Simulated assay, not measured.
Amino acid sequence: MTEYISPGCALIERFVATLEALPNVDVESVLWDSSLACLRQIVAEVRLRTTVEPVVVAITTKKTACPRDVRQLLSQFKELRSVYRADVQFLLAAESLSPGAKELLQAEHVGYYDSGGSLFLSAPGVYVLIDKPQPKPQEKTVRSLFSGRRANVLHALLIHPQDWFGVTDVSLRAQVAPSTASDVLGELERFDWLASRGKGPGKERHLREPGELLNAWAERLAGSTVPISRRYYVPGLKSDAQIQRLGRVFDEHQVVYAVSFEAAAQRYAPFLSSVSQVRAWLIPSPGADAAFAELDARFVTEGANLTVIETKTAGELLFREQVNGLWLASPVQVYLDLLRGEGRAKEMAEHLRRERIGF
């Protein structure tokens, strides 16, 4: 039977309840002794009896933890071993842990438990790995990075992955407020996606692993679809000459647009023998309506060869490139759009990433 010397935090109590449900593991005692305070953040000890030998788990707690937090904690644990018993098993209990934090802890054989029920414990006679979805507060924080104006900052970093940026540089390129840029850079630093140098106003960052950030963004989009605003049939749009004409007419009427999906990917990194449809992001305007009239574009529900995705913000049009007179969405935007496409779109996305994006 578990012995509680004094009341503890609910998170540790849930951790203990999880241990008690494990086969071949008995929780002998949970110590909430004030003398533990001298041991650098160790707030509780859980003593276990296993089929091999007794195990002492020393627990520290945090509200949230990302790779940067874990590296600091691992350094503290190494120091603690000189004043603690050598066979102790350290464990971090947190409301939420990032995937990178969990990977680091597993690699160092340090246990963890979070409020979502994820658990890792590696000790003589017991090995437990329970992986559950991130708790909602952490999930919401991560998800918010990939939407709205915050996503513009990610876009700016991925377009120039080797550049070092200050907050002002990023905010100007991403067309966001400096406070938004600063918040996003701070979050990315916590997730260990950024390297940094300097201090204060002169501090600069750049992406440590751009491929990991792009993978995370792609994962967030999994299963989602791009909203379709209008479908048109434009006579002769299959020919390259007519697609170029579309670009000229849009420019003449000062339409702000960016072709994406297969038609753009084909121009960045040819993959298909032909493309049957042009899909473009577009900011609605009277000029756009005039351009459609000049192109003899007819609104249809079936048989469309021009799909327009209307947007009120310039996020999807950031870093667009003009190629042979046609504005194309950035390779990063095209890649993300293709992942939400159908048919061979995902194959084309991987080809574009390999041949043009490069990470």
Rank of each mutant, 00 (worst) to 15 (best):
A21W: 00
K346S: 10
R356P: 03
L105I: 00
A174G: 07
K136Y: 12
R205A: 09
P284R: 00
T60H: 07
V153L: 07
R49L: 11
P67A: 00
A17M: 12
M348D: 04
D131L: 13
L207V: 07
Q41P: 12
G341W: 08
V25W: 11
K102R: 15
T168I: 08
S82L: 09
K132I: 06
S239I: 03
G343H: 13
V128P: 14
G315E: 07
E45G: 11
E219Q: 13
V153F: 05
K346H: 10
R248Y: 14
K62V: 01
L237Y: 06
L185M: 11
E108P: 11
L97Y: 02
A288T: 05
G8H: 09
W281N: 02
A44M: 05
E187I: 12
R248H: 14
V259W: 06
R143L: 14
S96P: 15
A195G: 08
V275G: 01
W32H: 14
L188S: 03
T2L: 10
I243R: 15
S122P: 03
R245K: 15
T51Q: 13
R340H: 04
E20F: 04
A304Q: 06
L119I: 03
L92A: 02
A65K: 09
V255H: 01
A156H: 08
L213V: 15
A86P: 12
Y335C: 09
I357P: 08
E321C: 09
E252G: 03
S144P: 05
V126F: 07
A181G: 11
E219N: 13
V226I: 15
Y233M: 08
R47A: 07
P23I: 14
S122F: 14
T307C: 10
H160A: 02
V226S: 07
L188T: 08
P23W: 12
P135D: 06
A241E: 15
G287F: 03
P331F: 03
V110N: 01
V249C: 03
W193G: 07
Y4G: 08
V255A: 01
R230I: 01
A151E: 08
V128S: 10
L92D: 00
L185A: 06
T18R: 04
F250C: 00
S330M: 03
A263G: 10
A263F: 14
L194V: 02
Q333C: 06
S330F: 06
E139H: 07
N24G: 13
G343S: 15
Y233I: 05
V300C: 02
K102E: 11
K136V: 12
K132R: 15
A86F: 05
F77S: 01
L282G: 00
E355W: 02
L221Y: 06
E212R: 10
E342L: 13
A107V: 08
Q322W: 00
S82A: 09
S29A: 13
A58W: 09
S182V: 01
V126Q: 06
G341T: 09
V128C: 10
L48T: 04
G166P: 14
L317P: 04
E209L: 08
H206V: 08
L336A: 11
C66F: 15
S285D: 09
G223H: 04
F250M: 02
L207E: 10
T50I: 03
C9P: 15
D192E: 13
L338Q: 09
G202A: 05
P99K: 01
